[in-house]
Lab assay of single mutants.
Amino acid sequence: KTVHVNGVQYDFDNPEQAERFAKEMAKKAGLQIQFHGDQIKIE
């Protein structure tokens, strides 16, 4: 899974790890999470 945070890309082999990371980042920055198939976007 790939997580995009403000244009920066983070790759994870483990989907659960990717989602946990995305939730942490979104919570910290007060941003929205969008799921697009294999990609998670935080903007």
Rank of each mutant, 00 (worst) to 15 (best):
K1D: 02
K1P: 05
K1L: 13
K1R: 13
K1H: 12
K1N: 09
K1Y: 15
T2I: 08
T2P: 02
T2V: 08
T2S: 09
V3G: 01
V3Y: 05
V3R: 02
V3I: 06
V3T: 01
V3N: 02
H4T: 12
H4W: 15
H4C: 15
H4Q: 07
H4L: 14
V5G: 01
V5H: 06
V5Y: 14
V5M: 11
V5C: 15
N6W: 12
N6P: 01
N6D: 08
N6L: 12
N6H: 08
N6R: 05
G7V: 02
G7T: 02
G7M: 03
G7W: 03
V8A: 04
V8C: 15
V8K: 10
Q9P: 09
Q9F: 06
Q9D: 03
Y10D: 00
Y10G: 00
Y10R: 01
Y10L: 01
Y10N: 00
D11V: 14
D11T: 14
D11W: 15
D11F: 15
F12R: 00
F12G: 01
F12H: 00
F12W: 01
F12L: 07
F12D: 00
D13P: 07
D13E: 11
D13I: 07
D13Q: 05
D13C: 15
D13V: 04
N14L: 07
N14I: 03
N14F: 04
N14M: 03
N14E: 06
N14A: 03
P15H: 11
P15G: 06
P15W: 14
P15C: 14
P15V: 11
E16Q: 09
E16W: 12
E16K: 05
E16D: 08
Q17I: 06
Q17P: 00
Q17E: 14
Q17G: 02
Q17K: 04
A18K: 00
A18F: 06
A18T: 01
E19P: 00
E19L: 15
E19W: 15
E19H: 12
E19D: 07
E19T: 10
R20I: 11
R20W: 11
R20C: 15
R20P: 00
R20V: 08
R20E: 11
F21M: 01
F21S: 00
A22D: 00
A22G: 00
A22Q: 02
A22N: 01
A22Y: 09
A22F: 10
A22R: 09
K23I: 13
K23W: 13
E24A: 12
E24N: 06
M25I: 10
M25G: 00
M25H: 02
A26I: 04
A26W: 04
A26Q: 03
A26P: 00
A26D: 02
A26M: 07
A26Y: 06
K27T: 12
K27P: 01
K27L: 14
K27N: 12
K27Y: 13
K28C: 15
K28F: 12
K28D: 05
K28E: 08
K28M: 12
K28R: 11
A29E: 11
A29C: 15
A29G: 07
A29D: 08
A29Y: 15
A29L: 15
A29R: 10
A29N: 11
G30S: 06
G30Y: 05
G30F: 07
G30P: 01
G30V: 03
G30H: 08
G30T: 04
G30I: 04
L31V: 11
L31H: 05
Q32T: 12
Q32S: 12
Q32L: 11
Q32Y: 05
I33W: 04
I33L: 08
I33A: 04
I33N: 04
I33F: 05
Q34Y: 13
Q34V: 14
Q34S: 13
F35G: 05
F35I: 11
F35D: 05
F35L: 09
F35A: 06
H36I: 13
H36R: 11
H36E: 11
H36T: 10
H36Y: 12
H36A: 11
G37P: 07
G37E: 08
G37L: 05
D38M: 09
D38T: 10
Q39P: 07
Q39K: 09
Q39C: 15
I40G: 05
I40M: 07
I40Y: 06
I40K: 03
K41L: 14
K41F: 15
K41M: 13
K41D: 08
K41A: 09
I42R: 02
I42H: 06
I42Q: 04
I42L: 13
I42W: 05
I42A: 05
I42V: 11
E43Q: 09
E43Y: 14
E43M: 11
E43K: 06
E43P: 08
E43F: 14
